[in-house]
């Protein structure tokens, strides 16, 4: 279980490693989009980590990166097809960002640094943890930006308009600059929290 919590929290892909920021910032303008991308990323992460870990003995060492990319591309295409079949409306909103999951360095990093060196079970846990961490980051950012930028919460998730919070939203929160500002504030907040109870090991890890 320590693998799981380490991947999801201490080594959170978005807030600690700062990986996968492109989709994180681009898609987090609403809760519905955030959920959709979390789901697709989780599917790709879990699939690729599991397959790579299971086949790590036959993947040629000198050409492992192309093989990893092939596996990740395969799962990304599968995720795209599944979303097209079962959540077409949502898919249209996030189509581009689902497709570029294949270039998300967060997933390649897990394949290279964890799945290709570990057994199946820890690799699966690592993938679940990373996916959870990424999902939490996406969903928190998505919820804040939707609340501030569109004045609603969960539009298209619970009901068509979601929970209506305000009539005059702060438009900048829904636009790209707002994504950077809010993500920066969240990052600073997370750092402040973790520095309050410093453990020497944790600080060095975060600075890498």
């Amino acid at each position: 279980m320590s693998v799981l919590s380490h991947a999801a929290w201490k080594n959170n892909p978005a807030w600690v490693q700062l990986l996968g920021l492109c989709p994180l910032l681009a898609v987090s303008n609403s809760l519905a989009n955030a959920l959709a991308l979390s789901f697709a990323s989780a599917l790709v992460l879990i699939g690729s980590n599991t397959l790579i870990s299971a086949t790590r003995s036959i993947i040629p060492e000198y050409a492992r990166l192309p093989v990893f990319v092939l596996v990740i591309a395969t799962f990304t295409t599968c995720a795209t097809l599944i979303m097209q079949a079962y959540a077409y409306e949502v898919y249209l909103q996030v189509a581009l960002f689902v497709q570029i999951i294949v270039t998300n360095c967060m997933i390649l990093a897990r394949a290279e640094s964890f799945a290709s060196r570990n057994r199946l079970w820890p690799s699966l846990l690592d993938a679940i943890g990373t996916a959870l961490g990424f999902a939490v980051a996406l969903i928190v950012l998505g919820a804040i930006r939707e609340a501030l930028g569109s004045g609603s919460l969960g539009a298209g998730v619970f009901s068509r308009d979601g929970l209506v919070l305000a009539d005059t939203p702060l438009l900048i929160a829904a636009l790209p600059p707002g994504a950077f500002i809010i993500a920066g504030l969240l990052l600073a907040f997370g750092r402040a929290l973790s520095q309050r109870q410093p453990s020497p090991k944790q600080t060095t890890e975060q600075q890498s």
């Binding site: 086949t55 036959i58 993947i59 050409a63 092939l70």
Partner: peptide, 8 residues
């Protein structure tokens, strides 16, 4: 290795 991975 390549062939097996591609097939999978």
């Amino acid at each position: 290795g390549f062939v097996v991975m591609a097939a999978i």
